[in-house]
Design a protein around this nucleic acid. Structure first.
Lengths: 202, 202
DNA sequence: ATTGTCCACCTAACGCCATTAGGAAAACAA
DNA sequence: TTGTTTTCCTAATGGCGTTAGGTGGACAAT
């Protein structure tokens, strides 16, 4: 019956993380306070230390969850086009931007460095690396099918792809940080990726 | 002899802003504390309120200085090519990225939203608007000379240009926040702008 | 030279924060 | 029933941004 305890504990952790995200939306990513989180979940601040050894550990848990969610969103979108890597790249980039616009708080945590002193642990960073690996696979596949120039598979080309997409996300987050808005900047995802695709077209 | 006082006051303000930048480099943009600034300039924290009515006002002053410096750097670079707007765009974008890589702390203040609760005042934001106006002028000139497609002067195209450049800066700041580094990501400025220029080539 | 005004600093204090120490009660295992 | 572990608590420390109120010196006017 140790199971019962673990279930309860995981539920509390989820509750804490949810409250943290809500408060980050209200007070800014770096403006979130453990005291406010504790108030929202009906605890005293020190009790949170039963679940996270520090505030940065809480950020780390949020980072890992967010990175995994983002990776999954991109993977699902790309997976819709299993034998059309160009379309997979387009869909993946659009999904990346859409997810970031829809989850602006945690997207800031991933795309920027908003919290002084916090750096994601290797474990939390892993989903992001897996996402880049996925991107690389699509590009390599496209090149092998002659749908992209060979130079598209170079390190610089991959970096350029992520940079272009990061630019769209950055504009979106900086200019519509609330996220709920129109997503004016997120609409640039398609055209931005087109710039890259045209340059590396065979 | 009121002049003497104003000179002295402005010198102190400069000293405070310099200390703030140094501490932001050490502790993060949002991690800078007025107490630490006061210590560094040899004052007690409340004395800083003779010069800035709040911490956010200090951020605002830094923002304005930085935005003006960035605008000037871009303007100088672009001005090197008065009758070659394409080269002016290239040089301006490179200067933008180089300045941001060389001043990573204040660049974060301009490109991101690192400080919860701080938004630049209209006055502090003005240099940034002037910089975008300059960019627009170059593009319009290039279009009128048939060096760019007419669609390059649309709102979307201008937004795409800023987005591509913002992407390079964002990658640079996120991955080499210390700035002093090799500027690996800043080297993408040229290729990134090329993507845009190729797409809008006549 | 004296007076009055203003500026630039100070100390003291308030309420908030993250974090640690140590204790109490409840949940579970024996 | 006893003992252990988990989960919460109160109390306290040292830091923060900011306000209130006081003091001395720099300046202007007499």
């Amino acid at each position: 019956m140790q199971d019962r305890r673990k279930v309860r504990r995981d539920a509390v952790i989820g509750e804490i993380l949810g409250a943290a995200v809500e408060l980050m939306a209200r007070d800014g990513v770096a403006g979130m306070s453990l005291s406010a989180v504790a108030r929202r979940v009906g605890m005293r601040p020190p009790s949170l230390y039963e679940y996270f050894p520090s505030k940065n550990a809480l950020y780390d848990a949020l980072f890992e969850r967010a990175a995994a969610g983002l990776r999954d969103a991109v993977a699902v979108a790309g997976g819709q086009h299993p034998d059309h890597p160009i379309e997979a790249l387009r869909a993946g980039a659009r999904a990346f931007v859409a997810w970031s616009a829809g989850n602006p708080v945690v997207a800031q945590l991933i795309s920027w460095r908003p919290v002084p002193g916090f750096e994601p642990s290797p474990q939390a960073f892993r989903p992001s690396q897996e996402m880049v690996a996925l991107l690389r696979d699509h590009i390599v596949l496209a090149v092998s099918r002659k749908e992209l120039r060979a130079s598209a598979a170079t390190e610089e080309a991959v970096l350029l792809f992520t940079t272009v997409v990061a630019g769209v996300v950055s504009q979106q987050l900086a200019n519509e940080p609330a996220g709920g808005g129109s997503g004016r900047y997120a609409r640039l995802a398609g055209p931005a990726v087109s710039l890259w695709l045209e340059h590396y077209a065979p």
